[in-house]
Amino acid sequence: MTTSTTRTTRGKGRDKAAPARPTQKDIALAAGVSQAAVSLVLNKAETPSVPPATRTRILEVAEGLGYRPNHLARMLRSARTMTFACVIPDITNPFYPGLVRGLQTVAAPAGYDVLIFDTDGRPEREARAIDWLLQGRADGVVATFFHLRVPQLAVLARKGIPLVRLESQHKPDGPLAIDSVYIDNAEAAAAMTRLLIARGHRRIAMIQAEFGPSQRRAQGYSAVMREAGLAPDFVTDSAYSEESGARAMTRLLQRKGERPTAVFGASDVLALGAMEAARNAGLSIPGDIAIAGFDDIPVAKLLGLTTVRQPEFDLGALAAETLVRRLQPGGFGSPGKSHELKFEIMKRSSV
């Protein structure tokens, strides 16, 4: 049995009947189940009291009726925003859309929307993000912070806002609800440096940014270079951008003496800028100079860039799963954890 309701509106002197928004009571009647069962299913509660077949029928009926949850009412009942925040340093960097997509894929079925806050990688913007979050804008946060550390971030956990950081290395467990997801950036950079050495390169330069994960990636590169009896060679620019990569590569090529035979960008966007500058100088890749990157952004495969692949989608999904667990009853009782995912070296034509 199905039910429908209408409401009367007035316009230009005559009554108009408009369909009312379907309610959970409507779904219960149409599905032949209790309203309590409908509430459990639509509020994402996993309970054996609602059999899988009944759950499926309720969801199908809800979709057929065009049911949409009352977000404001749910917020008032739960004292939550039903929103996750994703704080990133550069929305134009092609690495981050995959991360956000992974976050959304887990957040949406759990009933959470996702908001993005771009800090531009600046310390004052990171501090502004914390202030924004403390105003109650989100229930949980996935973030990349280049400048803030645990002492500055602890205020979120103390206010009941769990945080998952995208990190470049393992972080020790702590008492607060501050978790981390990461790949071992130092080992990944070391693996790429070993590949370059195995291909016969001895003069290998690294282009890096002033902050962020460059430090850990530089440590891995330096360690392998020294183990091989080679001298590390760094060129540093201001940001993770193609413009910074091109400037750094131009300075490198303008040096007197022998130029490097290989360049390792601390991110793919730095490596892409280096490729552009090398080609503008009349050099072929990899004939005159090999170039490698870090991240495996979508365009890297198209351009044949050898790079370190970070599983950005999986990092975002794991971060969201961690937040969902934290926000369940008792979720704040366990210490912060650091979760590692694996990297992969993508061998392509630029090396």
Rank of each mutant, 00 (worst) to 15 (best):
N93V: 04
N93P: 03
N93Y: 06
N93H: 13
P94Y: 09
F95D: 12
Y96L: 06
G98T: 10
G98Y: 07
G98W: 05
V100C: 10
V100S: 02
V100H: 01
R101L: 12
R101W: 03
L103P: 09
L103M: 12
L103R: 00
L103D: 04
L103W: 05
V106A: 11
A108L: 07
A108T: 11
G111Q: 05
D113H: 08
D113N: 13
V114R: 10
V114P: 14
I116M: 12
G121I: 02
P123R: 07
P123K: 00
A129W: 05
I130C: 09
D131P: 09
Q135Y: 03
R137S: 15
A138Y: 08
A138G: 05
V142W: 09
A143K: 11
T144V: 11
F145D: 10
F145L: 10
F146W: 13
F146G: 07
V150I: 12
P151H: 11
P151F: 04
Q152A: 14
L153W: 14
A154V: 13
A157Y: 06
R158A: 07
P162C: 04
V164K: 01
V164Q: 02
R165D: 00
E167T: 11
E167V: 01
K171T: 11
K171Q: 15
P172K: 06
P172D: 14
D173K: 07
D173H: 13
L176H: 10
L176G: 03
L176F: 05
S180Y: 10
I183F: 04
I183A: 08
I183N: 06
I183D: 02
